[in-house]
Structure formats: structure tokens, C-alpha cells
Design a protein around this nucleic acid. Structure first.
Length: 409
RNA sequence: GCGCCGGUCGUAUAGUGGCAAUUACACGAGACUGUAAAUCUUGCGGCUUCGGCCUUCGGGGGUUCGAGUCCCUCCCGGCGCA
């Protein structure tokens, strides 16, 4: 093997008896201390928060989205503006998702009550016969060798192939990019999961080929994505196929773990996959995010997470605290003169009361969403930092127990 | 004093004889996991064994099988004339 790792991943310490580890990833725009939480900035902006605020909240790396930036302002335009970093005035590491999630969110999940993580108590509910919903409206349709998207902005139709996704991502110019994949719904049956997985693997190969063509200067790292739904066999097969995949002596620089999960299935899926993925390369659990999921992921060997929750929940008035989430618009906070989370070191908590933030939300003032997002980003990013430190300090289990006890009350 | 117009669930409205009564805002509660999302759902007279039951459109009285809606009267507000 003579590939060059475009991101240098170093493991500093491992979690005893578990897959977890603390380390660093070196990128052209700086070092990421892992495990790390990646803040989502889909359209080249972390919604309602400027880059200085994102940085001050402790975020190390931002993830943009291929599909959204391709539609608007256009990847060529992003390139003309000097690439993602320069365009958005973010000086740290960046990533882009490939558009694979939009195959799901604008496809099978479109208009339905299905999301990235579904709460199911009886897993058998997850395996209904695949009902014929070909007539159901959807903005993404899987074709022969790519996906046809109907723009949610203007209805125009765009055919995205793995090659196209990689080309777009190279124009956008993040440090770490992802292979084009198909994120599947856990409600799909085994047959469909198998088909989709074969497709994702074929697309991964083509993503890697195209990436090699475009990556002449070796500046951009490509992560392959493992799928396979909730099936142990498929997950393990995918981890093996993706980690062994090689084109012209080059393989993936790291891995994404994708898919929509039932909450109960997430930890097993992550464990199956990370037992197989090579230890010396970083792993990113795509789109995951709640505190309990972060502990689970890190324990099971995940190095990177990204999630819209801190910012989306923040904008919508839900705030993280050590004792659980709160709805800031609830009547009880209207005259509460305490910060959102006592002892929190974020800008919002150091300077504002719950009563004021509640007022901003009631008054529909923009600053409400900003202050709430700053707090939530800080809360989640800082939680992951604390977990990282606990691995270094050999007290992961204590931190997890102590945190979850208070958090889940 | 006379004439005209008007008084509907917090606010603004819809309703001109036929199921507590439209819509918006406000208010209450909830949801959100690689952002179709500063969005969406839901409640908003009272009680309910969730099938209903009771009380409501300024007050009082009347017509009618049935009144927010028609008639009489009173109260309140606006405009016009004295």
C-alpha cells in the first residue's frame, strides 16, 4: 500500500477495552482534536451565527452541503469566490457532505414522517413489506447511475452522479469530502437494503476514481461511506468493502457511517462497523448528535460527528442544559433571571438571562436564534471536548455516568 | 334630543334563521439527529366513562321546531343633524 493519507490521523490514547480513542486529524486548515463535533453549515453558513461566534463557541470544523451549494450559489461560483473557507470567512477545517443524505430526505423520506433517527420500540414495525409508493411525490429519484433531483428552490431538474458530486465538492474545496452514497430508511426491507448497498458501493468506487482524477495537488481528503441499514451482515460487508476499496493504489482517507437508524439499532450498527474499519483512519458518524449518542459513538470508536440539532433546536427555542433540554418559550422562563445553564461558559450564558432570551423568542427577534444557537453549539462541542479529555484522563465511564444521571433526570 | 352605523372566544375579523361559530395574530404545549426547517404539529368556553353533555356572540324580553343572525327595549361606542 503506497497511498498517502491526506489527513494525518494520530491516535493519542485508546479507551480501555473499548473501540474509543482520542487523537488528532491534521488538515490543510488546521488540526482537529478528536473526538470532535462538526458544526453544520449547509449553505456555507452556520445558520444565524457568524464564523467568529462559531469559533468562540469552541467549534473546530464546519460541514457544508454539496447539493445545496451546487443549487445556490453554484459550485463554480463558490470556486470563483475562492472556495468554501474564503467565501464564508472561516479559517478552520471544513468538510462537505456529498448530497447522499438528500437522496433520502428528498426521496424516500420526502413528505413523510421519517427522519434520520426514528423512535421505535418494536423493531418488527420497521420491516413492513415495501409498499409501492412510486406515485408518492418526491424530489429525488434514483436512476441508473445517479440520482435525479428536482430542485426545491425552482423545480429545475438536476442529475447527480457520483462523478458529479465529487466534481462539485472539488469546486467547493473543503478539506474533507464524502463519497456519494444512498442513505436508506430503516423501514426498507432487506432486499432493498441489499440493492441500495450495492449501489452505494458502486458509487463509492466511482467517487474514488473521480476524486483521484481531480485531486492532482493532493489537497483534499475523501471519506468513503458505510451503509447497510440495521442488518449486521450488510453493515459488516459494507465496512469491509469500503475499507478495502482501492483505485490506482489509493483508498479512502477516512470513513463515514451513514444511514437512518432506529435509536435502538444505532450502537450495534456503529460497533459492527468500527470493529472492521481500520483503526488508523478516522471515522465520522454522519448526522448524529444527541448527548447520549455522542457518548455511545465515542465509546464505540467514532472520531467525528456532525448534526444539525444544536442549531436547529436553538433556532426553534429548545436549549440544552446539564439537566436536560428546555423550551425557552415556556411560561415558566418569562421572568427567570438565571442564565440558560448555570455554570455554562458560553457567550450567551455569561451575558444574558433566560427571561431576555424568552423575550427575544416571543418577540421573534433574530438575536434569539443566534444566542440560542451559540449556547447549543457550545454545549455540544464542549461536551465532546470533555469526553475527549476524559479518555485522556482515564475517566470516561465516570463522566458518562455523572453526565447522564443529571441530563436524563 | 333626533337619525344612521356598530357591539361575536385576549385582539382583529367571518358569519344575515339550521350542529360552540371562520380566519389571522396572541397565548399554551410538543416535535426536530449527514438542514425542503428562524420550521412544523397541536390545544385554545366548561365538563367528559371521548359517545357526548352543558354554557356562550353587550343586557333583558319576544317571534320561531330552531336566533349570533328577525322584532321590541335598555346599555355602550362612532358618525351626522340640532
Amino acid at each position: 500500500m503506497c497511498y498517502i493519507n491526506l489527513v494525518k490521523f494520530t491516535i493519542e490514547k485508546k479507551l480501555k477495552g473499548k473501540l474509543g480513542r482520542a487523537g488528532t486529524i491534521e488538515t490543510p486548515h488546521g488540526i482537529i482534536e478528536t473526538p470532535a463535533f462538526v458544526v453544520v453549515g449547509t449553505k456555507g453558513t452556520v445558520k444565524s451565527v457568524n464564523p467568529e461566534q462559531v469559533r468562540d463557541a469552541g467549534a473546530q470544523v464546519i460541514l457544508g452541503n454539496t447539493y445545496h451549494l451546487y443549487l445556490q450559489p453554484g459550485d463554480e461560483t463558490v470556486k470563483k469566490m475562492g472556495g468554501l473557507n474564503k467565501m464564508m470567512n472561516w479559517h478552520g477545517p471544513t468538510m462537505t457532505d456529498s448530497g447522499g443524505f438528500q437522496v433520502f430526505s428528498l426521496g424516500a423520506a420526502y413528505g413523510k414522517n421519517i427522519s434520520k433517527v426514528i423512535q421505535i420500540t418494536d423493531p418488527s414495525l420497521l420491516i413492513p413489506e415495501r409498499f409501492d409508493d412510486t406515485a408518492a411525490p418526491r424530489l429525488a429519484k434514483i436512476g441508473q447511475d445517479g440520482v435525479s433531483f428536482t430542485s426545491h428552490l425552482d423545480g429545475s431538474v438536476h442529475y447527480i452522479t457520483p462523478e458529479k458530486s465529487i466534481q462539485i465538492q472539488h469546486n467547493i474545496g473543503a478539506d474533507i469530502i464524502f463519497a456519494f452514497d444512498e442513505c436508506t430508511s430503516p423501514a426498507e426491507d432487506l432486499k432493498y437494503q441489499e440493492e441500495a448497498l450495492d449501489r452505494t458501493h458502486a458509487w463509492a468506487k466511482r467517487s474514488l476514481e473521480e476524486h483521484n482524477k481531480l485531486n492532482k495537488e493532493d489537497k483534499i481528503a475523501l471519506f468513503g461511506i458505510v451503509q447497510g441499514g440495521r442488518e449486521e451482515k450488510l453493515r459488516k460487508k459494507s465496512a469491509k468493502v469500503i475499507s478495502e476499496m482501492e483505485v490506482d493504489g489509493k483508498s479512502f482517507d477516512g470513513f463515514g457511517i451513514g444511514g437512518s437508524f432506529a435509536k435502538e439499532d444505532m450502537s450495534t450498527a456503529v460497533e459492527w462497523v468500527n470493529e472492521i474499519l481500520p483503526e488508523e483512519k478516522p471515522r465520522h458518524l454522519l448526522g448524529i448528535g444527541e448527548p447520549e449518542d455522542l457518548f455511545m459513538g465515542i465509546e464505540n470508536g467514532v472520531d467525528l460527528f456532525d448534526c444539525v440539532l444544536p442549531t436547529r433546536l436553538g433556532r426553534n427555542g429548545t436549549l440544552y442544559t446539564k439537566t436536560g433540554k428546555i423550551h425557552i418559550t415556556n411560561t415558566e422562563y418569562r421572568e427567570n433571571l438565571m442564565p440558560i445553564d448555570e455554570g455554562c461558559g458560553c457567550y450567551t450564558c455569561k451575558n444574558y438571562t433566560k427571561a431576555y432570551i424568552a423575550h427575544l423568542f416571543h418577540g421573534k427577534e433574530m438575536l434569539g436564534g443566534t444566542l440560542a444557537s451559540i449556547h447549543n453549539i457550545y454545549f455540544i462541542v464542549n461536551l465532546v471536548k470533555n469526553i475527549r479529555q476524559s479518555i485522556l484522563d482515564d475517566n470516561f465511564e465516570e463522566l458518562k455516568k455523572e453526565f447522564m444521571l443529571k441530563y436524563s433526570k
